[in-house]
Design a protein around this nucleic acid. Structure first.
Lengths: 154, 154
DNA sequence: GTCGTCAGTCTGAAAAAGGAACTAAGTTGA
DNA sequence: TCAACTTAGTTCCTTTTTCAGACTGACGAC
């Protein structure tokens, strides 16, 4: 598997990893979901080098996950806003946060709590089957080759 | 943010990223969920360098995501099995696969299809609220500081 | 006793990340 | 009007990771 062709692999996980599969990108996305939009804000929140931040933002824009929108004409200034494609990453981020809450917590408790505006309660994200609504477990899932599969990889 | 202290950050996403936030680790986990268990099998499925594979497997064992279990005494041979902590990563992997299916697909269709044994149907994973069961959207979630938060990071 | 298998380790070259200073365009304030 | 500040980057050099591939060691099969 080569990084520069990872997005062409016949595997949806590999294609996703090609886009968001590195540490900084995931942390940048966290900030996006916390309503951070500007270069300096990302930089000071994450202590990422400016060089890397610049690279990662460009890549996220190239893949259509963020949009670079001007918010000031003179001087020209831009902010980075999640597109729908970017917003659709939310389940990934929430699944990771939930796993961290469950398995990497310390005695102080959770860093963040999430409230569902629709029902007003603090919640955890749960992954269910789109067909029957039951909670998903790895052992309850059987994998079949789909039409886009070329070879013996997932 | 420093890599060697990432797992101590007061942020569950950062802690998760500290463990599985790199390309190879995610791809190795995909193979684990596809029932791959042995060094040579990982190596030939992923074309990862043996050195890196060895490192990543050690790290996953150290974090309690895989268990290194002997399957032959002479010669000593081991395989790598997902622990419960590892199995709990399933929603993350599935969320990534689903995003890839939705946003990174090509004309040939999906590489893999998933069947839910409980209901017998091909399904997509859906993330819902643990309290009301509604589908989750980023804009419907409000974030509060929890007891484990030290500073202004998520 | 040589070939093959499995689970790694070692090594040197290439690529990526880190750290810090620098640029550029405008704004504020004295 | 000139110095200091803000924002969004870029450039340069060092350190760390990753890559590609050879090598090791224990055994089994022919």
């Amino acid at each position: 598997m080569k990084w520069d062709t990872l997005e062409e692999e016949p595997c949806s996980l590999a294609r996703t990893v090609a886009v968001i599969g590195d540490r900084w990108t995931l942390l940048i996305l966290r900030e996006c979901f916390l309503r951070v939009r500007r270069f300096e804000a990302f930089q000071s929140a994450l202590q990422i080098t400016r060089h890397l931040l610049s690279e990662r933002l460009k890549k996220l824009v190239r893949f259509g996950i963020l949009r670079r929108v001007p918010y000031s004409e003179a001087p020209k200034r831009y902010e980075y806003i999640l597109t729908q494609k970017g917003l659709d990453l939310y389940p990934i981020i929430m699944a990771m946060v939930h796993w961290g809450d469950t398995h990497m917590g310390d005695e102080r408790g959770r860093p963040l709590l999430h409230e569902h505006k629709s029902c007003g309660k603090l919640f955890d994200p749960v992954m269910v089957c789109s067909e029957c609504g039951e909670v998903l477990h790895a052992k309850q899932v059987h994998v079949h080759a789909g039409p886009g599969r070329r070879e013996a990889v997932g």
